[in-house]
């Protein structure tokens, strides 16, 4: 992913690392930030409070968008630097346009919280998952696993 300007702003503070990962999931991006951080700034370990002060104090704004299966998602970030440290971060993740429509139009839930039900509890004729793979594939996979565990 390419966030040439916003990435360095993000990296200036550990507080924003979660956001960086969110944006990094998306693939392409089109940062439209202004003003931007100096591109030559060393980002170092990005640990909190270790800013080297290479960023000028002020308020930085940037937005990044990235395609996802539900359309285009975006994040708008406003970050304030004072005394070389991040004093404020505001993040507005945006479901917008088609993504928002989908949230309203389709059943929606959070998979991370979906425990589901045990197959033993269900009265079903079939189970549908990823396609069962061939014996050749499975045998090769087992061989690799066993070699890996011996290594």
């Amino acid at each position: 992913m390419r966030l040439p300007n916003t990435r360095q702003v993000f990296a200036a503070a550990a507080a924003t690392s979660a956001l960086l990962m969110t944006a990094a999931c998306g693939g392409g991006s089109d940062p439209a930030g202004e003003p931007t951080a100096p591109s030559s700034a060393a980002t170092g370990g990005a640990s909190s409070g270790s800013s080297t002060g290479t960023y000028a104090d002020g308020t930085y704004e940037a937005s990044a968008s990235y395609p996802n299966p539900g359309g285009v998602s975006s994040v708008d970030v406003t970050l304030t630097l004072a005394g070389g440290k991040v004093s404020d971060v505001e993040v507005k993740p945006g479901a917008q346009g088609t993504s928002l429509q989908y949230q309203e139009k389709f059943i929606s839930g959070i998979a991370g919280e979906v425990v589901g039900k045990s197959l033993d509890e269900l009265d079903v004729s079939k189970v549908s998952g990823s396609s069962l793979t061939s014996q050749g594939f499975n045998a090769a996979l087992e061989e690799i696993k066993s070699k890996a565990s011996q290594a």
Partner: peptide, 17 residues
């Protein structure tokens, strides 16, 4: 007929039918 939808994280469970 009813078909279970295998949980992508746990092949012993279903996320729906």
């Amino acid at each position: 007929v009813k078909v279970a939808l295998e949980h992508p994280g746990d092949t012993t469970r279903a996320i729906g039918v």
